[in-house]
Amino acid sequence: MTAISVRGLWKAYGERSVLERIDLDVDSGEFCTLVGASGCGKTTFLRILLSQERPTRGTVLLDDQPLPSEPEPSRGVVFQRYSVFPHLTVLENVILGLELQQARWLGRLFGAARRRALEEGEQWLAAVGLTSSRDACPASLSGGMQQRLAIAQALILHPKVLLLDEPFGALDPGIRADMHVLIKDLWRKTGMTVFMVTHDIKEAFGLGTRVLAFDKVRRDPQAPDAFGATITYDLPGRGDGAEDGTLIPVHFPSKPARQGV
């Protein structure tokens, strides 16, 4: 089944073309990594999938429906930084999505509903290995732990598509390998579709089932901004995460039956 279908996508800022002629079909459950030089438009492409930006021309379908015009819970996101909220504890950060979904006016749950949310949040903290930090505030966490938190926070709403914008770019190599294992495992168990922007080619091939390389194919030396980048290579990745060492077993919470979500 096709999860994301892109047809004739162009993106320009005024005179400056960033992306052009992008056609892409991505099956549900694929792990796509987006690579390319800095400024080649891969992050812009991710932002379009997020509805943070709108395409200048062309269509993007999510499960055969046009993409909603604003960011919403069908597509979760983890940025390189600032994905978690500094004023909430770790556990409060994780359950925020549930609270926003279930309490329309206050954005805050009480009593039994809150206890259920906290239970679910604890399961997610366990899944990303943050149980011991549940009451800490995010500023006291390391970069890797903040990204674990951001991932749990995004996944608690079970998005169809998870968008990762250089999520591990600021982490130490050792921590990054741990994160590869984690994201791989979560991806396998949830069956969600993942798009990840990265600068690290090894990471791209190691994690992705599909590696999409962005580059400009047309260049006008007189007008460097006239043409945008497109997908120049669409390669199968190994997608087994083997380079990252052995998989650690992770217990992953299943999607509970909830009404009205």
Partner: peptide, 24 residues
């Protein structure tokens, strides 16, 4: 990023004010 993230968690404008902006 915070405002985008809140939207992907389903926050309305009012919820963004109440849970994200006001406390900070």
């Amino acid at each position: 990023e915070q405002l985008i993230k809140a939207q992907t968690l389903g926050a309305s404008t009012w919820q963004i004010v109440l849970r994200i902006v006001l406390p900070q």
